[in-house]
């Protein structure tokens, strides 16, 4: 039911967001047409952080829930981290494309570029840990503990470090006044895009979880037959 609802809204909102981003929203002053990548880059970065937070919270609940009252929390944490990593890569790619157009090179060691790369490495390390413990009966506990620990670093990398060091990132969204100095049409398009990408993430995430549950059931049946 929830899955169908998410899917339906996503199928309506995503095309609307694309149309708004390319045809309705005006190009930003100075930055020009390249500013349209904002409607894809910012939402995917937001979704990456959201996915990492979901993986951390699921892990926290998994470690806390000794009586297994919640269902498949370890799978939820694992798949959220996986999705977060994918969106993190997309964030780096879209950011680099924009950096090339605006700053002249794909990589500039801007604090935001660097912090998203560090975040990426932290979650790559999680998958190294996960795969290193294939035969370990405590894999879910240890991997969940690492995800909770990793989640604590997220606010420092996303919010603190980019504010300590001077950034090349455009001012309208990220500024000291904590105000969005943006054209109303651009603001609305960005909000639409953020909602669409969040739904896109939830759609893929629930799809992955359904597949993972099915796989687990098949494996259980297989073990029962043996």
């Amino acid at each position: 039911m929830v899955y169908t609802l998410i899917m339906s809204i996503f199928y309506v909102l995503m095309p609307v967001s694309i149309v708004l981003a390319f045809l309705w929203a005006p190009p930003a002053e100075i930055l020009g047409e390249t500013s349209r990548i904002l409607y894809f880059h910012v939402p995917v970065a937001w979704v990456a952080v959201l996915a990492f937070v979901i993986s951390g919270i699921s892990s926290l609940l998994y470690l806390w829930d000794r009586n297994n009252r919640f269902f498949i929390l370890e799978l939820k944490a694992y798949h959220a981290a996986r999705m977060g990593l994918v969106f993190c890569v997309i964030t780096v790619i879209t950011g680099s494309m924009w950096a090339k157009a605006s700053w002249g090179s794909y990589w500039n060691w801007d604090p935001r570029q660097s912090s998203i790369m560090v975040l990426f490495l932290i979650y790559v390390a999680y998958f190294s840990l996960y795969s290193a413990m294939r035969e370990n009966s405590r894999r879910d506990v240890l991997a969940s503990a690492y995800l909770v620990f990793a989640m604590v670093t997220v606010p420092f990398l996303v919010f603190v470090i980019p504010r300590i060091y001077p950034s090349l990132h455009p001012d309208p969204i990220i500024n000291a006044q904590r105000k969005i100095n943006m054209d109303p049409a651009m603001q609305l398009t960005l909000i639409f895009s953020m909602i669409s990408f969040t739904l896109f993430f939830l759609y893929l995430y629930t799809l992955q979880l359904r597949a993972a549950i099915l796989q687990r059931r098949i494996e259980e049946r297989h073990h029962e037959k043996l």
Binding site: S115, V118, L121, I122, V124, A125, S128, L129, Y146, F149, A150, T153, F156, L157, I161
Partner: peptide
């Protein structure tokens, strides 16, 4: 591998 990314900041 696990420590390096966390200590990078």
């Amino acid at each position: 591998i696990l420590s390096f990314p966390v200590t990078l900041p």
